[in-house]
């Protein structure tokens, strides 16, 4: 199928891995996810003054603000995310929490805040949201337990808590030994969801990893005292030495 300025949809998927949006005004998109566009558009960092005034209401997540830009102008914009599946969600007076790196774009009618769970963003209100996932999203109704690597997000649910599988932990401790810690495999520690809502699940993250997780850890360092930073540095060096 040939895609021209005219034939590109205003707001729809182009197959599984790309999404076309008619830009007429402003919206937030994740940096680097624009793959092509027709028309006249400007991409501005959220740090620039004009944009700040316009969007301080919508973007309330300082740790993640540098990951997004504001698109302004007129035309058709196509987004892609490393060949991951892309889906659009129409939120109506909703609370939707997503792994930060899976948030590809959203309308300024939504308010974006940091979740209490590091590395997650919460979108509140009504509007359009674009999110990516490793394979099509599987919707699971709570109560359920989900491997954190496989969580895309959840809608209209309280924040989950961690649940350890006691038998598994016991087995792991016996086999590996307490000194080596519990090896992270996903089975012994899961996110436990309760309530009336939906959990969005994918196949676990691929080898590209999760840049959002590191960013959120780094952002938290600002709250640490010098002695705590030294302690952290020793901890990191110890881990590095142990690994090599």
């Amino acid at each position: 199928m040939r895609l021209s300025f005219q034939s590109l949809p205003d707001d729809d998927n182009l197959g599984r891995f790309a999404y076309s949006i008619r830009v007429d005004g402003e919206m937030f998109i994740r940096k680097g996810k624009m793959i092509a566009y027709f028309g006249s558009m400007k991409f501005e960092a959220v740090g620039s003054s004009l944009v700040d005034i316009l969007f301080k209401e919508a973007m309330n997540a300082p740790m993640h603000v540098n990951d997004f830009v504001v698109v302004q102008g007129q035309g058709k914009l196509v987004l892609g995310d490393n060949g991951l599946d892309i889906a659009a969600y129409n939120l109506e007076d909703a609370t939707f929490t997503l792994k930060a790196e899976h948030v590809l774009g959203f309308q300024r009618t939504l308010r974006c805040q940091e979740s209490t769970l590091p590395g997650y963003l919460t979108l509140i209100g009504s509007g359009r949201l674009l999110a990516s996932s490793n394979g099509p999203v599987v919707f699971v109704e709570p109560p359920c337990r989900v491997d954190e690597e496989a969580v895309v997000g959840w809608a209209d649910l309280p924040s989950p808590s961690y649940r350890y599988d006691y038998q598994y932990v016991q087995g792991a401790l016996a086999a590996v030994g307490a000194a080596a810690g519990i090896t992270r495999s996903g089975e012994e520690k899961q996110l436990d969801f309760y309530g009336n809502g939906t959990v969005l699940v994918q196949s676990s993250e691929d080898a590209l990893g999760r840049p959002g997780r590191l960013a959120s850890i780094v952002a938290q360092l600002t709250g640490l005292h010098a002695s705590e930073l030294q302690q952290l540095s020793r901890e990191v060096s110890g881990r590095m030495a142990g690994r090599s």
Partner: peptide, 22 residues
């Protein structure tokens, strides 16, 4: 291609802008 290939038609007065990595 990583993901299905997209074919964009460019016509007079309708230039297309593309991310070099894509």
């Amino acid at each position: 291609s990583f993901g299905h290939l997209l074919e964009f038609e460019v016509g007079p007065g309708q230039p297309l802008f593309v991310d070099p990595d894509a």
